[in-house]
Structures are given as structure tokens and as C-alpha cells.
């Protein structure tokens, strides 16, 4: 298997997860990177991506894996045939499917435009309750790991997977509470329970 880290920028942040999967599959076909198929009646290409990112959120830290016997320079082959917004930045052969959808537990994001606020104070709160997209009340405090200010940007690490907190939801909470308008949310790192490429 080949595991890879890739970007979702330059418009690709608006692709749906299924369309992104299709893009990656077609890129591999164009690049002559063979893709194994699952067995069964509805055979599908064995490409596995990390959990879907919310629409409009850019990322330089997406992860995926493909079952392939390709032996050349994967990054070069892929990038020569991929859309501008979907580029591989790192890759390795791995023994088995790293299952990024499960092993990524936290993600780090940055955003511009949130009014400065007292971060220490904010993080000292025991519970922060918001209404999620389905209208349910949830305590997001346990899903917030770090918040830092770096120049104009806010850098924050949130839970992912089972413990997921959408960065856009988090930002709109901060906007409401502290003011400003979050621009240019970018996922900069995916933090895994194990190593990046096993």
C-alpha cells in the first residue's frame, strides 16, 4: 500500500468528499498508478481517505492510502496529473492500511480575523456549551485541546473522529463571543494515535 499526505486548497476545499475521491481516483488513472479494486458486486477502487473535511475548509494535512503496486515516484507521478488544489506533499510504502479515518484523533487549524481574547481565561472554563448544526446542545470544552495566537492568526487544536469538533463551528462560536469574522481556515496538521506512515 501507498500512504500519502496531500493538500485540499485552490478551490478543492469546495469539493464534496465523494467528488474528491473521484478526483484522486482519476488522477491516479491519468498518472498510470494502478489501483486495486475491492471484490464483490459493486467493486470500488481501494482508496481510503481521512474523515471528510467541512466544505470550504482548506487543508495542507490530508491523508490517504491506496492499494497499488506502483513502483515509481508516487508524488511526482500524482502531482503531474492532479488538479492544482490536490497535491501530494509526502508519501511512503506502508504494510497495511493506516486507516486514517480512525487513527487521526486531533487536528490543528489556523484562522485569521478572530478578535483577540484572553486565551488562558477561555481555556480555564470547565464547560463550553454550543448548539450544533442539528440543534443539539453539546459541551465542546473537552474537544478543545490548545488555542494559541500567532501574529494575526489563531492556532487551535480540536478533536477529530469520534471526538470531532468542526473548526468552522468553533470559529463561529468565537466570533459570536469575541467578535471578528474568521477568514481562511486552514487545517495545518493531523495528529495521529500512532506514526504518520507505519
Amino acid at each position: 500500500m501507498i500512504a500519502f499526505k496531500y493538500t485540499k486548497t485552490d478551490g478543492a476545499e469546495y469539493l464534496s468528499h465523494l467528488d474528491l475521491l473521484r478526483h484522486i481516483y482519476r488522477t491516479m488513472r491519468r498518472a498510470d498508478i494502478d489501483v486495486a479494486y475491492s471484490g464483490g458486486y459493486h467493486a470500488h477502487p481501494r482508496i481510503f481517505l481521512n474523515n471528510p473535511l467541512g466544505t470550504g475548509i482548506k487543508s495542507v494535512a490530508e491523508y490517504g492510502a491506496v492499494e497499488s503496486t506502483f513502483a515509481g515516484d508516487f508524488m511526482e507521478a500524482f502531482n503531474s496529473r492532479s488538479p492544482d488544489g490536490v497535491k501530494v506533499t509526502k508519501w511512503a510504502y506502508v504494510k497495511e492500511n493506516p486507516n486514517y479515518a480512525n487513527c487521526i484523533v486531533k487536528c490543528t487549524y489556523t484562522a485569521e480575523g478572530i478578535q483577540p481574547f484572553d486565551i488562558d481565561n477561555f481555556l480555564s472554563e470547565k464547560s463550553i456549551v454550543i448548539t450544533d448544526l442539528r440543534g443539539r446542545e453539546v459541551d465542546i470544552r473537552p474537544r478543545i485541546y490548545t488555542v494559541e495566537r500567532r501574529g494575526d492568526r489563531l492556532l487551535f487544536t480540536l478533536g477529530c473522529g469520534e471526538n470531532n469538533l468542526r473548526p468552522d463551528l468553533f470559529c463561529s462560536y468565537l466570533e459570536k463571543r469575541f467578535g471578528g469574522h474568521a477568514e481562511d481556515i486552514i487545517k495545518t496538521a493531523s495528529i495521529m494515535s500512532g506514526d504518520e506512515f507505519v
Binding site: 478551490g11 478543492a12 466544505t55 481562511d184
Partner: peptide, 23 residues
Amino acid sequence: NIDELKDILLKVEKPSRYTGGEY
């Protein structure tokens, strides 16, 4: 600049119709 259309793009059906960037 499509980054400036973000608020609109997030509200519409299939925003990738309007972003370009096709291979």
C-alpha cells in the same frame, strides 16, 4: 477572487460548480 465569495459558496448547492480548478 473566490476566497472573497466564501460566504456565498458555503451557502449554495454544489459550490464546486463555481470555483474552477478542474484538472
